[in-house]
Write a protein that binds this DNA or RNA. Sequence first.
DNA 1: TGGGTTTGCTACATATTCCGTAGCAACGAG
DNA 2: CTCGTTGCTACGGAATATGTAGCAAACCCA
Lengths: 103, 103
Amino acid sequence: MVRRVRGSTTGRPIMVLLDLLGRRWTLRIVWELRDEPRRFRELQDLIGASPTIVNTRLAELRAAKLVELDETAGYRLTALGNELLRLFLPLHVWSEKWAKATA
Amino acid sequence: MVRRVRGSTTGRPIMVLLDLLGRRWTLRIVWELRDEPRRFRELQDLIGASPTIVNTRLAELRAAKLVELDETAGYRLTALGNELLRLFLPLHVWSEKWAKATA
DNA sequence: TGGGTTTGCTACATATTCCGTAGCAACGAG
DNA sequence: CTCGTTGCTACGGAATATGTAGCAAACCCA
């Protein structure tokens, strides 16, 4: 199995990040962890994806140190993950405006 | 062809947006249009994806009114697209920090 | 007029990824 | 010893992405 950074040969951090976030369910998982920790199945039900892909994305997010597994509480954002989430929070408000504009 | 919102039955704007952005190459395309308009092939070369998927994503972005095609200049962000991009710009700086933390 | 180039985009076969279902082993509670 | 919950995996079929080739229209320059 060839482990290369998809879509970028340079390995520039922004490209690696965009590649990571630009995968099915990744953004959504980070989003669902914004308030409280979630268990594996709980997360699965929330987003409605198969356990296979949930597990894959969680593994990637953990490798990227954005998510961690607390045995007693469940999956949660790391300090880094929280920083990233904060950058995305304005999206929530903006998406409402966007929805009206595209309607 | 069934046209449903993938991964969300509610249709909440934030979910629709996360779904749109959480597709291969979508974020990357928006990113590559941040400074100047790009032609179809130029975009294709920049990100290194097949024309099929570039065209598909461009169609989705155009339907979402985030990208438009100016016949003389090429593909570029709409006003909405620019707003969205501005929300993402801090990612560039943050990604550098993140890269160091995960190294 | 007649190339040659660039434009956006599509066809098609292959390769990869994703999905839905089922189920595993480990652990704790009763 | 059973029951529920935990994270996670196997497997076959469906959907998506890739890579190559090429189309028609518009343009440039002679």
